[in-house]
């Protein structure tokens, strides 16, 4: 019984942080395909925060995508790999405020780990399928992305514009003669 203190310590830790310790990692696809299996369960879900955080009084709505673009969008050079896929998350504003960068055309959003209770049809939110988060952790901070212009496109633009201008000029000339 020399290790009794160790057992007591572990038990204390598990009591203190039960939900985080017991949360099951899951994907949005699994939640949407088998909602009844996860309803009411505490889950952990990792993905890119996109769009914006919408703060409404005591809660904030986030949307978290765990698709192929979480590490880089098509706009930033990734190849097309299907639709976006993600989940709606609602959290107290003080928890949601850790998210700084939201993914859009110009940004790769923060990659965040959400821990919370999954609801297949939430009675608090009009039947929405959502996750009530009680912890959000930044896995990888987001960043601005840059777009590049290629010469081929610019050449095509010039050629088409010249063609259109020539046709427009000719049409105006014909109309003026009439």
């Amino acid at each position: 019984m020399r290790h009794r203190w160790l057992i007591h310590s572990l038990a204390a830790i598990m009591v203190a942080v039960p939900s985080v310790a017991l949360a099951a990692p899951v994907t949005s696809g699994e939640l949407i395909e088998h909602p009844e299996a996860w309803d009411g369960e505490t889950i952990t879900f990792t993905g890119e925060a996109i769009g914006e955080g919408m703060v409404r009084g005591s809660e904030a709505w986030l949307h978290v995508n765990d698709d192929a673009y979480a590490d880089g969008s098509i706009a930033a050079g990734a190849a097309p790999a299907g639709y976006n896929s993600g989940h709606a998350v609602v959290a107290p504003p003080e928890i949601a405020e850790v998210v700084r960068v939201f993914g859009d055309h110009r940004h790769r959003g923060d990659l965040i780990e959400v821990t919370g209770v999954f609801n297949a049809a939430c009675s608090q939110h009009g039947g929405d399928m959502d996750v009530h988060a009680h912890a959000i952790r930044i896995v990888r901070p987001g960043a601005e992305t840059r777009e590049t212009l290629d010469r081929g496109r610019l050449t095509a633009l010039v050629l088409f514009t010249l063609g259109a201008a020539a046709l427009m000029g000719r049409l105006m000339l014909v109309q003026a003669r009439r």
Binding site: H105, E147, T148, L149, R153, L154, A156, L157, F160, T161, G163, A164, L167, M168, L171
Partner: peptide, 21 residues
């Protein structure tokens, strides 16, 4: 969004070439 602007410039000019033509 300059890359997108160029794409729409090409699209617009292409429509004018076909339409006016």
């Amino acid at each position: 969004e300059w890359r997108t602007a160029v794409d729409f410039g090409i699209g617009l000019a292409a429509c004018l070439v076909v339409g006016l033509g």
